[in-house]
Design a protein around this nucleic acid. Sequence first.
RNA 1: GCCGACGUAGCUCAGCUGGUAGAGCACUUCACUCGUAAUGAAGGGGUCCGGGGUUCGAGUCCCCGCGUCGGCUCCA
Length: 645
Amino acid sequence: MFELPDGTTLALSEGATGTDAAAAIGPGLARAALAVKVGDEVRDLARPLPSDNGRVRKLEVITERSGARALELIRHDTAHVLATAVMELYPGVKISIGPPIEDGFYYDFDFPDGVTLSDSDFERIEAKMREHVDADEPFVREDVSVGDALARFAREGQDYKVELIEDLIRDDGVETVSLYTNGPFTDLCRGPHSPSTKRIKAFKLQSVAGAYWRGDASKPMLTRVYGTAFFSAKDLEEYLHRLEQARARDHRKLGRELGLFMFSEISQGAPFWLPAGVVVWNALTDLWREQNRARGYTEVRTPILYDVELWKQSGHWDKYRNNMYFTDVEGRQMGLKPMNCPAHVQIFKADRRSYRELPIRLAEQGLVHRHEPSGVLHGLLRVRQFSQDDAHIFCTEAQIEDEVLRCLDLAYYLYELLGFDPRVELSTRPDNRLGTDETWDHAEGALAGALRRRGLEYDIAEGEGTFYGPKIDLHMTDSIGRSWQLGTVQLDYMMPARFELAYTGEDNAEHRPVMIHRALFGSFERLIGILTEHYGGDFPLWLAPVQAIVLPIADRHLEYGAGVHDRLREQGVRVELDERSESVSKKVRDAELRRIPYMLVVGDREAEGNVVAVREHRVGDTGTLTVAEFAARIEELVSTRAPRF
RNA sequence: GCCGACGUAGCUCAGCUGGUAGAGCACUUCACUCGUAAUGAAGGGGUCCGGGGUUCGAGUCCCCGCGUCGGCUCCA
């Protein structure tokens, strides 16, 4: 017995297939069917349904309308068709794996020596793929013994498939594997697939990239082809259009257009902050400083260059040396700090500490240098030199959960202000770790407890904690869907031990404090990158590099305009005056393109009435105000850090 | 770091199979003095990423660097 989504039940004879089920429900559904979902498992239509063993199981027929599940099916189909075409066009190519992924699929190939692929080859490959789609070739599943499968792929020289099967035998003890054949192509594949290639209505190859076999940098590099597929050309077009629009929000493009920052070959991975970018930075610094002060942090500043002895003691020499920069100073080896923690530890150690002082919360806009591999640099989001909104909290074991909760409160205060909705991750003990299980139990419990008290939903990243403690990470997504870590709250038992930190307890005995490492913006660089994309360049007034621009209509209005400009500047408004002898339309257009929130048009009427005509960015004319009224409005929006004007 | 693509004026880009560089925007000057997304004209501006090589001749072909982009790996 099967229960259908509408709650009705369906009885089928033993051995009935997915096709039979769809047909039993209705002929239209049978035609539209791509696969069936029984329980949580999606299966080929042609396969007999699993025996119900007398239980009622949920059954759903997957069609084009089934959303992500259906798209995943035909994207996986398309990956097979891609491999089919590549095998035909490039004899001797070895295939590896080709799964569906978010928004598309990929297939990894190992081309014969001397053969490379570029996107200029896509047209030819797509044409060949189209032939197979048009040919309406069924996907035929066949379950074979691992012996037969191994023999087959070994004979064909498909080494990667052989390796995959050998691993399946070794790790999972499988005795049979499934093969799927479409047209001339047979692949080792778990399935499921739709009935035939004809179900792929629209597809496109998108990019080619290198990818290590099994994601292991010591293994051969394969050629990965990315593509996507949809049920209609219209859906594909819309998707490509969305991608294009997302690229318009790219912070690297906006950063140049808005004069926020620049890069130079002469210092790879290190942003040059331009005047407009510094305004944004400083506005964020004001927020950071204000909130730190309000929440019991004290601000410090520490050096960036230290004797390597410090890094040996902290463990960075062992664990992080490859990412650090070193230099010789009069024969002494020095290293630039990649993190601020050992510096803050020095401050903690500089005095005898009492339990009465704890928690001690040291905050710093700390400039750190990390030697990131050149291939991973990415605008402001991955750089080699950056300023963290760092803080280290030295506290007792008993204070941990409250302190972590305070960190989360601050994080969410900031994130809500910025309009962020982060993904939260709790990373637990890794295999390679310091400390006892009891310590880890307590540490993980404290983090989870704080998350629970805050009512946050979170993913658990098993084993992804640092070797010195578990952590909570807050992630945001950029304009092209990549996830970046902004905030982090980490518990650390190791650093206090390595530096023999101690405080005198109520019992007059020495105790070891616990350290909490905490950065909520992550870094100002990454934050501004994400913020730029988040706002699409339209910064809220409190962050906008230029908040208003005065646009005189004709040269004879320059004097009045200059007066308006000066009065606003005295009120603390970041204001400019467009003195060019251009048309109003031109001045408005340029101000709109610069995303300036307010344009103040002044002509005869305004000069006469001692007012300004206010045009709001992306809104248009909003009427006339006196300069004082306008300044008050700005002041209100800035002081409340209003999300949008 | 690895794989691939790319690198032409400040920006965005054109430059067929080799015959010593071009557009739009921006900039400067002049004219226009304008009421809410481009007024017109003239002008200036380029070691074609750098270094080798092939060739009578290289922006164009080859090699080596550097950088950027997309992935992969990495990411306190």
